[in-house]
């Protein structure tokens, strides 16, 4: 028996696609982990330039100020906006790094036994899936600021190259997390102790 992960319908083993929703049916996607790792690496590669290049260019009268993601957050903290600095730091640094670590951990852990229980790992997966999108907030802030602060001769803000790489990094890590098949979490456990009824 093989199950459709999209609409929960069960079909006889060997059915190529779900008769209800048209999804391709695979008992376990063998390429799932390869996809996860490939997208993970691309995401990480985009994350490096996203932190090196400037995110925002602020022109005020005679000065041009270029700030990176972390630089911008530090500047905000200097001006006393600790809450906003924290949001930016969490969304742009803590969440992406945590996500890289969590996806890598999950991908490694389905191959080996022991350590975390399945429930802890599933919780981790759900958190990653839910929270990853929120990293996009910094891109939207840059977009809003660039459109809004266009006061000729007074101040103008424009986006830097980091915005491009950061957006790509978020997209690739989201795809990487989506490629992960959570059913593998339970397979690893089933190998440890006798499986409950499953197909």
């Amino acid at each position: 028996m093989v199950a459709c992960t999209r609409c929960t319908r069960a079909w006889p083993l060997g059915t190529p696609e779900c008769g209800r929703c048209g999804a391709k049916l695979v008992s376990r996607d063998e390429h799932s982990l390869q996809k996860v790792w490939a997208l993970w690496v691309v995401g990480l590669m985009c994350y490096v330039p996203a932190n090196v290049y400037p995110m925002l260019k602020t022109k005020q009268l005679f000065t041009v100020d270029e700030s990176t993601i972390i630089g911008g957050a530090v500047e905000l903290a200097h001006h006393g906006a600790f809450g906003i600095a924290a949001i930016i730091l969490v969304a742009s640094v803590v969440i992406p790094l945590g996500k890289f670590w969590a996806v890598a951990f999950l991908a490694v852990s389905v191959r080996q036994r022991g350590g975390f229980t399945s429930h802890r790992r599933l919780l981790m997966y759900e958190v990653v899936e839910y929270i990853g999108r929120w990293s996009m907030i910094d891109i939207f802030v840059v977009a809003i600021l660039s459109a809004l602060v266009q006061l000729k001769g007074l101040a103008t803000i424009s986006p830097g190259p980091a915005a491009f790489f950061f957006a790509l990094s978020v997209i690739f890590t989201m795809l990487s997390a989506q490629a992960f098949d959570p059913r593998m979490i339970w397979d690893a456990q089933d190998n440890d102790n006798e499986a409950p009824d499953h197909g």
């Binding site: 199950a3 459709c4 929960t8 319908r9 069960a10 959570p182 979490i185 339970w186 499953h198 197909g199």
Partner: peptide, 10 residues
């Protein structure tokens, strides 16, 4: 039958 898409329980 209904199969859980997350953990394959039936």
């Amino acid at each position: 039958l209904i199969v859980c898409p997350v953990c394959d329980a039936t």
